[in-house]
Design a binder for these strands. Structure first.
Length: 818
RNA sequence: GCCUGGGUGGCGGAAUUGGUAUACGCGCACGACUUAAAAUCGUGUCUCGCAAGAGAUGCGGGUUCGACUCCCGCCCUAGGCACCA
């Protein structure tokens, strides 16, 4: 037999699969249960596929092949998130049109995916920059518009002066542009928004019914940031002006001893003539303006300035309290103003100590010790001591308890007091969310045009459905000037006037690319449909059963996609309200030293090089063997040889295969069936690393045999085939099979063959292992215990003592306690 | 500061309804084959100890016949973030 030659084998089968349409499926076949497994589609960058993609896509490919062999009709599509800034930035530099670069990059990606043996049908791909695709992005926008889920407003937004475009809050990293790294400044810009906040509650409750990693769910909940509390107004002394605060602790209102406003709070302008230290205040506001949100968050020490001459009235106590501005209070959250209760909030206490402000305790824990039942809780000795400690700043109490120093509410349980006190001062209970509406307008060229035109009076109108796709004009100059590139297109201007009339102008902004990727999984079942985004019959494929991708998409992409589906469900476009039933993340791929790969470090590993050297089967299997899927993988070239040797062993083992009715060693069948069971369960749970190791154990045992029964070897090939599709196909063919191994049914394990006739039982004396015995299947518990105690080693360690207790764990161990 | 993970041999990692810690792989050492090397195969490989044995899953406690696994308190580390009122 010839030596294992991965290059010849892999190119042979890749060609064969392509020619025979091995990865095509009949999407209308209803004879089998459906399974939809999805990868997060890549942005086709000029750098090509990276190792992270390789791991993620291999993981889904293994699952696809497994499910297919189990008899499912499996949809396993791939596409490209093709709009975006890098292609446009490249165009600015080189004048090469983004459409051209994008197409080139996509072809590179497809070639690389084929090299890895990934089973995608690229005739069925979705490409977001293709007018046939974005027609439906625009159509969905229109549906949202008609259903009052889109609105336009002018708002202070993050502006990247380098990209000359608005950046979503979620896309700002360290106060810098996520894509180009330039500083983000605040700028007033008009734009379109999606009402994602309408679904804030649904986005939280929907998490309960989907199988996602717990930490991902928690992070989404935290991101949405629901908090229940009250809005309460504080009057400014000697004025009609009022400041509204949002607080989760209205029960502590009697302890509010000062207020803090965000530096951008509008009321400050109205108070200018009364602020005695206006210069200092303006100076502070100016400095805060130049700070990015991240700077404000990261500041070690809280800073602030008192508004001299200004006092607010605590509506509960009617006391005059000082007012500060401080940049740790954010204009964009709540009402941009807080009441401060230093006795019951750590941050307020820190600030109060720094500026020497009054601390007034108003909640005390229930103190049980030395309690006199005839005296009210608030007058108990222990409570009075506690109050003293808090008042002196020694401690801060932020938990639940009973009110003190709170007028007629004293001695009430604080949770009950929330509503009562709010009512008392004329406030109202409200729910506040951290989540903001999604700004989707971008002043960029390479994106999906917003299908809106403006009549001469400036009113916005949707582009009618018959004019979709509302295409991206080709005649533009990409160089950013602060106005949208589309404004420079003669063709777009003429097109608009021709269709709508003289004086009509098109919307010049394009959409955030996260819009494109918020619905792409709805397109895959029916990507060529020109009448609908997806036909009713093809909607049977939805929702996605298993979604695999990086944890970096926890907040933006996964939240936006969920919002899209919920909105579309509300409109009646889909009949489910969660897009991804099961979600799993893959970890990062690091270099051999455990460092992140990056161009600047020069440690980027190209998947093609690895495939050339070790073969796709080895690269695939090693990626999944090296670490659990969700963990980081260190790409250590020295270790991949272990997997390569394993595949070589598989190759050589085929020469021991005997056909016909060969009588087989029972021992191998026992292990084989155990392995089939373990590999099946492990794949189903995406525990690929232990599945591979189980197969390594099996081959080490099989190697020792003189002869291998054909059916045993074939079963082994089948369970290996999802990981190493090429070598298994080749060996399958060498055995004389004419069909593809990948269309074979998944091997079944036989519980009878897995039964053991005897077990090794460990003997412990006081929990320490002292001996082991072989116990025949079916031996009674008492007999095993007796046998254990009769052992020489047991007698020695028992040293004549009578056992206090003997514990027997079936077929595992006996623990003799003396 | 807060949130979420993670800490097991020289290295990647395995083991949880609490039951033989270190599977599998890499590396290393020795041996076989070879003129030699590579490849392959075999044996060994947590630490201390001549041995009997003892100790070890970040550290310190606890529960238990028995703890990597559960509880309490720390330390270190990675990633994420929202000082959220």
């Amino acid at each position: 037999m010839e030596k294992y030659n991965h290059k010849d084998i892999e190119s042979k089968w890749q060609k064969h699969w392509l020619e025979t349409g091995a990865f095509k499926i009949d999407k209308d076949d209803t004879s089998k249960p459906k399974y939809y497994i999805l990868d997060m589609f890549p942005y086709p960058s000029g750098d090509g596929l990276h190792m992270g993609h390789t791991e993620s896509y291999t993981a889904s490919d293994v699952y696809y092949r497994f499910k297919k062999m189990q008899g499912f009709n499996v949809l396993h599509p791939q596409g490209f998130d093709a709009f975006g800034l890098p292609a446009e930035n490249y165009a600015i530099k080189t004048k090469v049109h983004p459409a051209e670069t994008t197409e080139k990059n996509i072809n590179t990606y497809i070639g690389q995916m084929k090299m890895l043996g990934l089973a995608y049908d690229f005739d069925e791909k979705a490409v977001t920059s293709d007018p046939k695709y974005y027609k439906w992005t625009q159509w969905i926008f229109s549906q949202f518009y008609k259903n009052d889920l889109v609105y336009k407003k002018t708002s202070k937004t993050n502006w990247c002066s380098s990209c000359q475009t608005v950046i979503a809050n979620e896309q700002v990293v360290d106060g810098k542009c996520e894509r180009c790294g330039a500083e983000i400044i605040q700028k007033e810009v008009p734009g379109w928004f999606f009402k994602i906040t309408d679904f804030a509650d649904d986005l939280i409750t929907g998490l309960e019914k989907i199988d996602w990693p717990e930490h991902t769910k928690k992070n989404q909940v935290n991101w949405i940031g629901k908090s229940e509390g009250a809005e309460i107004e504080f009057r400014i002394q000697n004025s009609e002006l009022k400041i509204k605060v949002f607080t989760t602790r209205p029960d502590t209102l009697f302890g509010a001893t000062y207020m803090v406003l965000a530096p951008e709070h509008p009321i400050i302008e109205n108070l200018e003539n009364r602020i005695q230290n206006l210069g200092e205040v303006k100076n502070y506001i100016e400095r805060a303006k130049n700070k990015t949100e991240m700077d404000r968050i990261e500041a070690k020490e809280k800073t602030g300035v008192k508004l001299e001459g200004i006092f607010a009235i605590n509506p509960a106590t009617q006391e005059e309290i000082p007012v500060f501005i401080a940049d740790y209070v954010l204009g964009g959250y709540g009402t941009g103003a807080i009441m401060a209760v230093p006795a019951h909030d750590e941050r307020d206490l820190e600030f109060a100590k720094k500026y020497n402000l009054k601390i007034e305790p108003v909640v005390s824990p229930m103190i049980v010790e030395n309690r006199d039942p005839l005296i009210k809780h608030s007058e108990q000795k222990g409570v009075l001591e506690f109050i003293g400690d808090v008042r002196s700043g020694k401690k801060c109490f932020s938990e639940s308890g009973y009110l003190v120093n709170s007028g007629k509410f004293t001695d009430m349980y604080n949770i009950e007091a929330k509503k009562e006190i709010t009512k008392f001062v004329g406030g109202k209970m409200t729910t506040n969310y951290r989540l903001r509406d999604w700004s989707i307008s971008r002043q960029r060229y390479w994106g999906c045009p917003i299908p809106v035109v403006y009549s001469p009076d400036g009113e916005a109108h949707l582009v009618p459905e018959e004019n979709l796709p509302w295409t991206l004009p080709a005649d533009v100059d990409f160089v950013p000037t602060g106005i949208s590139p589309l404004a420079k297109s003669k063709e777009l201007k003429e097109r608009t006037e021709k269709i709508f009339g003289e004086g009509w102008v098109p919307e010049y902004d394009t959409m955030d690319t996260f819009v494109d990727s918020s619905w792409y999984f709805l397109r895959y079942p029916d990507p060529h449909n020109e009448k609908e985004f997806c036909s009713e019959t093809r909607k049977k494929w939805l929702p996605v059963d298993l979604y695999i991708g990086g944890a970096e998409h926890t907040y933006m992409h996964l939240l936006f996609a969920r919002f899209f589906v919920k909105a579309m469900n509300k409109i009646g476009l889909v009949n489910f309200d969660e897009p991804f039933q099961r979600l799993r993340h893959q970890g990062m791929v690091l270099d051999g030293q455990g460092k992140k790969m990056s161009k600047s470090k020069g440690n980027v590993i190209n998947p093609n090089d690895m495939v050339n050297r070790f073969g796709a089967d080895s690269v695939r299997t090693y990626m999944l063997f090296a670490a659990p899927l969700e963990d980081e993988v260190m790409w250590n070239e020295d270790n991949i040889v272990g997997v390569y040797r394993f595949l070589e062993k598989m190759w050589r083992l085929s020469s021991k295969v005997k056909g016909g009715e060969l009588k087989v060693e029972n021992k191998i069948q026992n292990l084989l069936h155990k392995t089939i069971k373990k590999v099946s369960n492990d794949i189903d749970n995406l525990k690929y690393n232990t599945a591979v190791s189980a197969m390594m154990i099996l081959i080490n045992d099989m190697e020792k045999e003189e002869e291998i029964a054909r059916q045993d070897y074939e079963s082994f090939l089948k369970i290996l085939s999802p990981f190493a599709p090429h070598i298994t196909e080749e060996l399958w063919q060498i055995l004389g099979n004419t069909n593809s191994i990948h269309n074979e049914p998944w091997p079944k394990f036989d519980e009878n063959l897995m039964k053991d006739t005897s077990y090794t039982v460990v003997i412990q004396i006081n929990g320490k292992v002292r001996a082991e015995i072989q116990v025949e299947e079916g031996t009674s518990d008492d007999d095993v215990k007796k046998l254990a105690m009769e052992q020489e080693a047991s007698k020695k360690w028992m040293a004549g003592n009578e056992p206090k207790k003997v514990i027997y764990v079936k077929n595992k161990l006996v623990n003799i306690v003396i």
